[in-house]
Simulated assay, not measured.
Amino acid sequence: MIYSIVSPVHIPAGLAGPDPMDFDVRCFLVPHASGVTLVDTGLDRSVPLIAAKLAEIGAAWSDVTDVVLTHHHPDHTGGLAEVVALAPGATVRAGAHDTFPVAVEAAADGATIRGLRVVATPGHTAGHLSVLAVEDGALLVGDLAGNPGDGLTRAPQAFTADAAEAERSLHKVRRLDFARLYPSHGEPSDRLALEQLLG
């Protein structure tokens, strides 16, 4: 089971373009046999929402064994320092080519973390990664793609380090075995939506 934690984001006009932007950012809890893995930590204000979701599923910070970061952008790591303080026993892992404000272990392409298979998906950032929840048939894609409400889209070019590399990563995940797709921005989607995006 994948549990989404949703935080609304508002960017005023002029900060990221001429128009204001409203969207959400998501992090995820993935229970396993001996605890819970947290994928991304969201914004700093996401931490109480993570705590509430942990309580809702009958878990606590002490049950968080692992934190997996899809990439280093602040809407995915804003809560990281607080999460590390609240779950000091958790191992934090991320792509080796991104930098973070806390110590992280490199998550190698193909490695398995508590039933989550690491998939290197560079492009949005150099160290961007996705994770495949094998038993759930679910692919958590970070910012490799998003779902703003009218179908799956590529990440905005303004926030993507290497669009050509990101495109190669999209084609890489297309070959994986999954049914549900969980972007970090927008509602969950499915394999068909990815096929439609790639044409």
Rank of each mutant, 00 (worst) to 15 (best):
M1F: 12
I2E: 13
Y3T: 05
S7A: 15
V9L: 14
P12S: 05
G14W: 09
G14S: 11
G14V: 12
P20G: 06
R26Q: 13
V30T: 01
V30G: 00
P31G: 09
H32V: 04
S34W: 08
G35T: 10
V36H: 01
V36M: 03
V39M: 01
V39K: 00
D40R: 02
G42P: 05
D44H: 10
V47E: 07
P48H: 07
I50S: 01
A55R: 13
A55W: 06
E56L: 01
I57K: 08
A59D: 00
D66L: 06
T70S: 09
H73T: 10
G79M: 15
V83H: 09
V84I: 10
A87E: 03
A87I: 06
A90C: 09
A90E: 03
T91A: 14
T91W: 11
R93L: 15
V102N: 06
V104M: 04
V104I: 10
V104G: 00
E105W: 03
E105A: 10
A106I: 09
A107S: 04
I113R: 11
R114D: 13
G115D: 06
L116P: 00
L116N: 05
R117V: 08
T121M: 01
G123D: 09
H124S: 07
G127I: 08
H128T: 06
H128Y: 06
H128F: 06
L132G: 05
G137L: 04
G137Q: 05
L139Q: 01
L140V: 06
G142L: 11
D143Q: 07
L144A: 00
A145W: 00
A145C: 15
N147S: 15
N147W: 12
P148K: 12
D150K: 10
Q157T: 11
A158F: 05
F159M: 14
D162V: 11
E165V: 11
E167Q: 11
E167G: 08
E167H: 11
R168M: 03
L170Y: 05
L170G: 06
V173A: 00
R175E: 15
L176R: 04
L176E: 06
D177I: 02
L181Y: 04
L181K: 04
Y182D: 02
P183C: 06
S184F: 08
H185V: 11
G186C: 05
E187R: 07
E195Y: 08
Q196C: 10
